[in-house]
Simulated assay, not measured.
Amino acid sequence: MIAIDLNADLGESFGSWTLGDDDAMLEVVTSANVACGFHAGDPSTLWRTVHAAARHGVVVGAQVGYHDLAGFGRRFIDVEPEDLAADVIYQIGALAGVARAAGTRVRYVKPHGALYNAIVGHADQAAAVVAAVTAYDDDLAVVGLPGSAFLAAAERAGLRTVREAFADRAYAADGTLVSRREPGAVLHDPEEIATRMVDLVTSGRIRAVTGESIAVQADSICVHGDSVGAVGIARAVYEALTAAGTRVRSFVE
């Protein structure tokens, strides 16, 4: 039986600003990428999210990003690799402490937003994130875009790598994500998205915005928790995959 993980970016509320419906998402997904306070999230939000993930039996991962609360981590920062590595270690450690108190633990690391996109090709920053994970705990898995400099560096370092596809994002012909600044970059129709993900899982291919079918290998599918209708999208993807005979389960089982 084909198996696939379903993950979501969660814990991204901050103070009185509520983003997404984490409780509802945790009833659907199998892995939770929890913000660590640099691009989003605060201690109370992290605690509630991790505690709820533990209650639902959802695997917890550290969603690390640039130190950019104002920009939600979606702005590239030309940070020195040594500083970036320290930032990533700091974020993992913060979430790991909260997770331990909630009776669970961090099992993987996934970069967020601009950092995720930067380390597709930015070798120095990719190496810095890998160095941080290796220094903190080399048993942690890392999640990233297939073909990225990040996953290549992680493989060389002996880390477990998890290839990720995006349910609610459009793809360019080269397998990268279409910039959020471009029209049509974010998808919203749950039925369309679910059909795309079944095709992806069963055939290893997805249709790019330019019309061609491109190869995309994935071990995990992400639904962004801050997308409009995110819970409905996640449920549609889960139900469609299950109906197609795919087992939806975490990659760390």
Score class of each variant (00 low, 15 high):
40 A>W: 05
9 D>M: 07
54 A>M: 06
123 A>Y: 01
233 I>N: 07
85 A>D: 00
252 V>K: 03
74 R>W: 00
166 F>T: 10
139 D>W: 02
158 G>L: 12
83 D>C: 07
52 A>G: 02
8 A>P: 05
239 E>R: 13
215 A>P: 04
78 D>H: 10
138 D>I: 00
14 F>A: 00
124 D>H: 11
75 R>P: 02
99 A>D: 09
146 P>F: 08
35 A>L: 05
180 R>T: 04
17 W>P: 00
59 V>H: 13
101 A>M: 12
215 A>S: 14
220 S>Y: 09
61 G>F: 03
238 Y>S: 14
10 L>E: 01
16 S>W: 13
137 D>C: 01
199 D>Q: 15
143 V>F: 15
146 P>E: 12
105 R>Y: 09
161 T>Y: 09
65 G>A: 14
149 A>L: 06
88 V>K: 06
3 A>E: 14
229 G>C: 11
86 A>Y: 04
123 A>N: 07
39 H>L: 06
201 V>W: 08
28 V>T: 14
34 V>M: 04
34 V>P: 01
106 V>A: 13
102 A>E: 08
147 G>C: 12
210 T>R: 10
98 V>Y: 02
46 L>S: 09
106 V>S: 11
219 D>E: 14
168 D>E: 11
20 G>Q: 02
79 V>G: 00
100 R>I: 02
122 H>Q: 13
8 A>T: 06
220 S>H: 11
71 G>E: 06
244 A>W: 08
186 V>M: 03
247 R>F: 01
91 Q>W: 04
83 D>L: 14
14 F>D: 01
233 I>W: 07
193 I>F: 09
247 R>Q: 12
244 A>S: 14
239 E>A: 15
106 V>G: 08
39 H>I: 06
164 E>P: 04
136 Y>K: 00
248 V>W: 04
187 L>Y: 05
171 Y>L: 09
22 D>A: 05
35 A>Q: 00
182 E>N: 09
156 R>S: 13
65 G>D: 07
207 R>C: 08
24 A>W: 01
82 E>C: 03
99 A>P: 09
242 T>H: 12
133 V>D: 03
65 G>S: 13
111 P>A: 10
25 M>T: 03
72 F>A: 11
84 L>S: 07
196 R>Q: 12
166 F>V: 11
220 S>V: 07
83 D>K: 13
177 L>E: 03
134 T>W: 05
209 V>W: 06
36 C>I: 08
86 A>V: 09
108 Y>H: 15
208 A>C: 03
12 E>C: 07
67 H>S: 13
24 A>R: 10
232 G>W: 08
113 G>R: 02
208 A>H: 04
210 T>M: 00
88 V>L: 02
108 Y>C: 10
200 L>I: 10
72 F>I: 09
13 S>P: 05
182 E>Q: 15
54 A>S: 13
58 V>S: 00
25 M>P: 01
50 V>T: 13
236 A>V: 14
55 R>H: 12
33 N>H: 06
113 G>Q: 02
20 G>N: 01
53 A>N: 07
34 V>K: 01
87 D>S: 14
206 I>P: 05
